[in-house]
């Protein structure tokens, strides 16, 4: 039991936090701008590498570098929207998806050019897991990922439920046309959507880098579970995306537990297949997701 919690459930929660932070942006962008943002994984990668540069340049710990990564990811996303996506506001969503392929290529190759393709790490050495109670132990990185995610999610909740802009963002993801005719400054909401979505993605990227290692396709590799989480939670439902992210993260890790025999039920290499099947099952049986999102 302790083994299950230590090696499967808790890491699953940590991975779920990473998915949750990434999926919120995908869900909001999908609902507000009506396209699936395929470059979201690469924004995560960018955040992870920005944090790396701060760690190297200033000698800080990666946790101190996190705010810089978030800021960088937020500003970069808003800049990308301004230069690339804004001219497509009246185009069919699918054209913007293709444009996001272009952004994906540009961001990833820029990262490869600038930081190289070697596998990097924020810190060296191994830290001992911390006993929580009884046999339950928590790896330090998992504690920090989970705690930081809770703080970020609380801040997000405050923003979405208390601030005028946050409410407008929820309004627009509810019904963008109605938002427009109600006199909401939709372009401003769009800019904030990129700031929030990009900042959260950057944080998720840093956590992914802490959880494993840094490499240029770290975000791309997470894109599929992010989409799955956003769809599971319901498009346009930020809280749904958080639940969806946690569910997918936990499901992926727990599926590798040797439930039936000595062998893992799902080989660890096929974790992403779990996300894929959840996604396809939702699309077929309940495309609005668990929390009655929109089908665009």
């Amino acid at each position: 039991m302790a083994e299950f919690i230590n090696l499967y459930l808790l890491p699953g929660v940590a991975v779920g936090c990473i998915y949750a932070l990434g999926a919120v942006g995908i869900s909001l962008i999908f609902a507000i701008l009506r396209f699936a943002h395929f470059a979201h994984g690469d924004v995560m990668t960018l955040g992870a590498y920005l944090a790396y540069s701060v760690v190297i340049a200033l000698g800080w710990s990666v946790y101190a570098a996190l705010p810089f990564a978030i800021l960088g990811g937020a500003l970069a996303s808003m800049g990308i929207d301004h230069v690339v996506y804004r001219p497509f506001r009246r185009s069919p969503g699918i054209i913007v998806v293709i444009a996001s392929f272009g952004v994906m290529l540009v961001v990833r190759s820029a990262i490869q050019l600038f930081w190289g393709v070697d596998i990097l790490s924020y810190e060296t050495g191994i830290r001992r897991p911390i006993p929580l109670f009884g046999d339950i132990r928590l790896a330090q990185k998992h504690i920090i990922i989970i705690a930081a995610s809770v703080v970020i999610a609380a801040a997000l909740h405050w923003f979405l439920s208390r601030s005028r802009m946050g409410k407008a963002m929820r309004a627009m993801s509810d019904d963008a046309d109605l938002a427009r005719i109600s006199g909401i400054d939709t372009e401003k909401v769009v800019r904030w959507t990129w700031l929030i979505g990009g900042g959260l993605a950057a944080a998720a990227g840093v956590f992914a880098g802490i959880n494993t290692k840094l490499h240029p396709s770290i975000g791309w590799d997470l894109l599929l579970p992010l989409f799955a989480a956003a769809i599971l939670g319901g498009i346009g439902r930020p809280y749904g995306a958080i639940v969806g992210g946690l569910a997918i993260g936990i499901a992926q890790e727990v599926a590798t537990y040797p439930w039936l025999s000595e062998l893992p039920l799902v080989p660890p290499a096929y974790k992403n297949a779990v996300a894929f099947f959840v996604m396809v099952a939702m699309l077929v049986w309940r495309p609005t997701g668990l929390f009655k999102g929109r089908v665009l």
């Binding site: 005028r164 409410k167 407008a168 929820r170 309004a171 509810d174 109605l178 938002a179 109600s182 006199g183």
Partner: peptide, 14 residues
């Protein structure tokens, strides 16, 4: 109406 927003939030959006 914005279905997922409260009545108060709907009015605020106006």
């Amino acid at each position: 109406v914005f279905r997922n927003l409260t009545v108060l939030e709907n009015l605020e959006m106006g």
